[in-house]
């Protein structure tokens, strides 16, 4: 579980954060974005991280996704200490263990749908045949096979986010990190994407989602609330 004390998930936890701090240094100001955060996420768990704007949700997700490094503390992902890896090793872990779903979809406009999904597999130097198979399976999973050769600009927002989900799951990552996945969608498309994530979770995916929308937090097994960079509350949904 989670608390500001040591986590209880040392055994069987996919993710263990211990005493994570993040301080941003500017010219004369230190901003403490995260202070002494402890968090365990079990394999197959669906965790929602919520909190008001500026509470550190995105910073926490960035550290979980190895897009940023903590100023202090330990981070164990699938049994591996990853808090202080080299940039090259972090990239390798991101590529193999983590799937990202962004609020703004972040598809590359000059690549087709299939090429976008294939991209992380390419960086893994996977054989072309296997890449093709995985892309086809991922597209099928999100119901976008018919749009494989389209470019992102030719898709609706909901469709783009489904492609982003397909890209995130194509490499069979250990965990999916979703940063406000419905933030750029209308409610109908937002619901659809949340249903898709639930479906993935039901098939065994571990998901960590940042959201400020209470409507969607209930999709998760557990909600972790942040306030002023600290875990304020944790509840089973």
């Amino acid at each position: 579980m989670d608390s500001n004390g040591p986590g209880n998930g040392q055994n069987g936890a996919l993710i263990t954060l211990s005493g994570i701090k993040k301080v941003f240094f500017t010219d004369e100001v230190e901003t403490h974005a995260l202070s002494d955060v402890h968090l365990d996420v079990k394999k197959g768990e669906y965790v929602a991280i919520s909190g008001p704007s500026g509470c550190g949700k995105t910073t926490l997700l960035s550290i979980l996704g190895l897009l940023d490094t903590p100023t202090d503390g330990e981070y164990v992902l699938d049994g591996e200490q990853v808090a202080r890896l080299s940039p090259m090793a972090r990239a390798r872990v991101r590529n193999r263990q983590i799937g990202f779903i962004f609020q703004a979809f972040n598809l590359i406009g000059d690549l087709t749908v299939a090429e976008n999904i294939e991209l992380p597999l390419t960086y893994r130097e996977m054989a072309a045949n296997e890449r093709r198979d995985r892309v086809a399976r991922a597209l099928e999973r999100v119901g976008m096979s018919h749009r494989a050769k389209h470019f992102p600009a030719q898709l609706s927002g909901g469709q783009q986010q489904r492609v982003a989900v397909a890209r995130a799951v194509a490499g069979d990552p250990a965990i999916l990190l979703a940063d406000e996945p419905t933030g750029n969608l209308d409610s109908k498309n937002g619901e659809a994407v949340m249903e898709l994530l639930s479906e993935l979770h039901q098939h065994g995916a571990t998901i960590c989602m940042v959201t400020h929308d209470s409507r969607y937090a209930h999709y998760a097994d557990r909600e972790v609330s942040l306030f002023d960079g600290r875990v304020a509350d944790a509840a089973v949904v």
């Binding site: 897009l67 990239a91 991101r94 590529n95 193999r96 972040n106 991209l119 992380p120 960086y123 893994r124």
Partner: peptide, 9 residues
Amino acid sequence: VRLSLGAQR
């Protein structure tokens, strides 16, 4: 995006 997906620099 490419870096977040695991591209090496």
